[in-house]
Design a protein around this nucleic acid. Structure first.
Length: 552
RNA sequence: GCGCCUGUAGCUCAAUUGGAGAGAGCGACUGACUACGAAUCAGUAGGUUGUGGGUUCGAGUCCCGCCAGGCGCACCA
């Protein structure tokens, strides 16, 4: 809708200029917004205020001229110049009512846009070190990434969801050694957990499980071989748990990508050769460096340590080389916690070194979640094992409430997550308010039974509460655009509440299924309205990855 | 010390990319079920947007300084 109005305004300005009523000037980006106050209409534009200075006329006069040249549109019933020079638009009631038919016809594709024009975008999220059970902080990452992927899909992008498995490197080695130690201990052998190793109780359990199944088989092997073999077992245990948690959260990936494969399949070698030829690689003190500072990075970065082991950044380079050059994504979004925020400059430098537009890589940074239990701050550490696991919270609170809660905060906003508080408040989570609206509609439709309302006359929808509801319903495409272009899924949660609120209010004021024969035509129209509303509710819930129940 | 993020109602957070009188939820208070779900609705109270300057028709939003909090600043990830 905003786009349509912007187009009308553009046409009007061009016409006015053509007619000589306005001098030629370059059109600023046309911002169509929803005013806060009802008497300012449904949409507003500030173009006259923006250009008044350049045009040399008072803003109200500019606005009047634009309005005079505004082409008529069926969805607008009134255009007004107001305040210092705003142009306010009011939606036509009849048009609003007719949108019910549009929504019913489009069904689950209502709200879909073509902003993406089939551009291929990859959203990479999750990607925690596979060294233990997931904690709640991690959930923010996947919930954000998953809803974002939903939004981009709705906006018309071709989206791939990818999970990056960090199955190599120092942390993996520590994990393997820790697991080996627990395994050996389970068999009565003295074995130390390494410095910086993983001490969580789950490691003890896994060590025991492996000992039960495999007996002392790994103890018979050379240590290096045993570490590798036991590491494989451990990795599969971790990933199994991760997949179960993600399943509970309703998250599925298109692809699981192994960090190790970057080396095994030769991508690392390839990209290093390219960077070397580009003069971005140098050697110093036995290590191999990437000259990031020459490309806008804050400092140069070690790629291969003097021990000969590639560092984390080495994988990042090879991984993104693989994403862009081998797989050809037009756009890649990595969802990262704020603890990785300092790595953004070197990633951008890497893009430049590979001759890629840095704009094609978006690092979406979200602020970390502070975990608390009964008001006490917990340090989240898989190494010490002092965590609130995601599973624990899913069992206590439920996936819908978790997802909604995590989505209500903008990525930039820090969050506290208190398990005790979450349990207490889960019943008051606004998600149920939204779901209740959906279930309530399902109930009304059940009550209506097989009553045929397909010939309902929508022009009967003139009640104030009906129109208020319709105004919310037709907002969905604008919300999808807003949230998708800003990579900001939190807008969905607020919209969902507004929509549900408009429905509940309508429901209180307007009887949908009446037994009086003379109400029959209105019943039919309202059943259509309610059905369409259910579709919109289901859409927005779906974008958030929250279920849309028929009963609660 | 340097970089990034944040500071808005008692609490948790929004605020349409610089717009009109800053909005929700929770909590508090007042009211509403004799036909479709009260997990609901209608209403009241609650604010010097951390602070001091600046930019302009207009600032919670942009710029500068301070104060406070979070996260970084390794041949860890």
């Amino acid at each position: 809708m905003k786009r349509e109005i912007a187009q009308l305004l553009k046409d009007a300005v061009l016409k006015a200029q053509g007619a000589g009523d306005l001098p030629p000037f370059e059109l600023p980006p046309l911002i169509v917004e929803q005013p806060q106050r009802e008497e300012h209409g449904d949409y507003a534009n500030n173009l006259a205020l923006q250009v008044a200075g350049r045009v040399g006329m008072p803003p109200r006069q500019v606005a009047e001229i634009v309005v005079k040249h505004l082409p008529p549109a069926e969805f607008i019933s009134r255009v007004e110049v107001a305040g210092p020079g705003f142009i306010n638009f009011t939606l036509d009631d009849g048009w609003l009512a007719r949108q019910v038919e549009t929504i019913l016809a489009q069904g689950p594709s209502y709200g879909r846009l073509d902003l993406g024009r089939d551009k291929r975008v990859q959203v990479e999220y999750g990607s925690a070190n596979p060294t233990g059970p997931l904690h709640v902080g991690f959930a923010r990452n996947v919930v954000l990434g998953d809803s974002l992927a939903n939004l981009l899909e709705a906006a018309g992008y071709e989206v791939q969801r990818e999970y990056y498995v960090n199955d190599t490197g120092t942390q993996m080695r520590l994990f393997n050694e820790s697991l080996y130690a627990r395994y050996a201990q389970a068999l009565g052998r003295e074995e130390e957990i390494p410095e910086g190793g993983y001490r969580g109780p789950y490691m003890v359990e896994w060590g025991r499980e492996i000992a039960e199944v495999e007996d002392d088989r790994y103890l018979q092997m050379p240590r290096e071989e045993a570490l590798e073999a036991i590491g494989e077992v451990g990795l599969s245990k971790v990933l199994e748990g991760v997949k179960e948690d993600l399943e509970l959260l309703g998250i599925r990936y298109d692809n699981w990508f192994s960090e190790r494969s970057l080396y095994e399949d030769g991508y690392f070698g390839e990209v290093m050769e390219i960077l070397r030829q580009g003069g971005h690689i140098f050697e110093e003190e036995g290590a191999i460096w990437f000259g990031a500072s020459a490309l806008g990075g804050d400092k140069d970065e070690v790629v291969v340590r003097s021990t000969g082991e590639p560092g984390y950044f080495a994988s990042d380079i090879a991984y993104h080389y693989q994403k862009f050059i081998k797989r050809g994504f037009d756009w890649v979004i990595d969802v990262w916690g704020a603890d990785h925020q300092g790595h953004v400059p070197r990633m951008k430098a890497m893009m430049r070194a590979l001759g890629l537009d840095p704009e094609r890589l978006t690092l979406l940074i979200y602020q970390l979640v502070t975990l608390k239990r009964g008001g006490e701050v917990l340090r989240l550490s898989k190494r010490t094992g002092d965590i609130i696991t995601l599973r624990e919270v899913l069992d206590e609170v439920g996936p819908d409430a978790i997802r909604f809660f995590l989505l209500t905060h903008a990525a930039d906003s820090q969050m506290d997550f208190d398990l005790e508080l979450a349990k207490e408040q889960s019943q008051e989570n606004p998600v149920y308010y939204v779901q209740y609206a959906h279930a309530r509609i399902a109930s009304v439709l059940r009550y209506a039974g097989d009553f045929d309302y397909s010939d309902g006359d929508l022009s009967l929808l003139t009640h104030e509460a009906e129109l208020a509801l319709l105004r919310q319903m037709v907002l969905l495409p604008d919300i999808v655009e807003l949230a998708a272009t800003n990579l900001a899924p939190h807008h969905l949660t607020y919209y969902a509440q507004d929509l549900a609120s408009a429905f509940h209010s309508f429901y209180k004021q307007c009887r949908v299924v009446s037994s009086y024969p003379e109400d029959m035509p209105l019943n039919k129209a309202r059943l259509k309205l309610v059905k369409a509303c259910q579709i919109v509710l289901a859409q927005v819930l779906g974008l958030m990855g929250v279920s849309a129940p028929e009963k609660m």
